[in-house]
């Protein structure tokens, strides 16, 4: 009996430590669905990263949300992930060893509202809900930043917030539900704005008080492989260039993946405010706000989290 338990524990610890050591010459990249990830999607479709990393096996993993990516990187199942700055900062604050190695995109995020339900934020009351993807998401933090500036209290509307995935939130905003406003991102925001009774209440830059990078690339410290990072950067940059210089061709490739027609895809890719580049803007403003409002516990400076190149 006793030996059996010891054996069991040994087996388990071997299994657990097994997933801490990553294999060499493999890079595992998490991929999320959404327009802001377009360069990544394109790089994947055209094998652009594989082209620049011929000696590597590139594994793509389609992940539903940022929390899952974070957990995947924690368990060393993922090396590279792309996400908003706030969820990155929360992980860093909780002791995750990871760094931002590039920016990916800026996008016109914003708070939309259903005009049939409310006409301003002041009208939000117990009957209404504001939909968001999840607490601690960039959408949540942007709304809180806006509220801090406008009302003095970042969490003044917290009682009315509802977390729900983007597509379900869109459904709820348009249907006859209590969801009166939705803080979301492209392409959902574009589709919502096509409706006659939906309009912007606040856009992302207004909420932030300036420009910020929506999606950044994140690498876990232990992966620590500059060669691979350079290869990924080259591949993604190539995709970015294609979107900028030949958006029609990019749209042609991406349309079937997004389940849209080419024309719509093209209009979304070139939408005012969609900006694909490797800039990283807004880390310290986010972290300052999040520290002030207890979303994180320690001060995080830009130099702490940027991957030195």
């Amino acid at each position: 009996m006793k030996t059996k338990i010891v054996v069991l524990i040994l087996v388990l610890s071997v299994l657990l430590s097994g997933c801490v050591n990553s294999e060499e010459k493999t890079v595992k990249i998490a991929q999320q669905f959404g327009l802001a990830y377009a360069p990544l999607q394109l790089a994947k479709e055209l094998d652009l990263i594989e082209k620049h990393l011929p000696d590597y096996t590139v594994e793509w993993k389609q992940i539903m949300n940022t929390a899952t990516i974070r957990e995947g990187m924690l368990s060393s199942d993922l090396d590279i992930g792309f996400m908003g700055i706030p969820p990155f900062l929360i992980g860093y604050d909780k002791g995750m060893n990871w760094k931002i190695f590039r920016g990916l995109s800026k996008a016109p995020l914003g708070l939309t509202y259903n005009k049939d339900k409310i006409s301003s934020l002041e009208e939000i009351d117990i009957k209404h809900k504001i939909a968001l993807p999840q607490p601690g998401s960039i959408q949540h933090i942007l709304l809180a930043m806006y509220l801090e500036r406008e009302t003095g209290t970042a969490n003044s509307l917290d009682d009315y917030l509802l977390t729900i995935s983007h597509p379900d939130g869109q459904l709820a905003l348009l249907s006859n539900s209590e969801v009166a406003a939705h803080f979301t991102s492209p392409p959902y925001i574009f589709e919502e704005l096509k409706e006659d009774n939906v309009d912007f209440l606040v856009d992302g830059n207004e909420a932030f008080g300036g420009e910020f990078t929506f999606i950044v690339g994140v690498v876990r410290d232990k992966f620590n492989n500059q060669e691979a990072i350079d290869g990924i950067n080259k591949g993604v940059d190539e995709a970015v260039e294609m979107i900028i210089n030949d958006p029609g061709k990019a749209a042609e490739i991406l349309a079937p993946i997004y389940g849209l027609d080419e024309e719509t895809t093209l209009s979304y890719l070139t939408w005012d405010g969609m900006d694909f580049n490797n800039e990283i803007l807004g880390i310290e403003k986010f972290s300052g706000f999040m520290l002030r409002n207890d979303y994180i516990e320690t001060e995080i400076l830009e130099e702490d989290v940027l991957n030195e190149q």
Binding site: A67, K129, Q134, S137, L157, D159, L162, T163
Partner: peptide, 24 residues
């Protein structure tokens, strides 16, 4: 866990989501 209310109290599933998104 599918949908929850941020400020006002939610149920246990909601508690789990909250802990998850803040990596607790």
């Amino acid at each position: 866990m599918f949908f929850g209310v941020i400020g006002a109290t939610g149920g246990l599933g909601w508690y789990l989501v909250k802990k998850r998104v803040f990596l607790d």
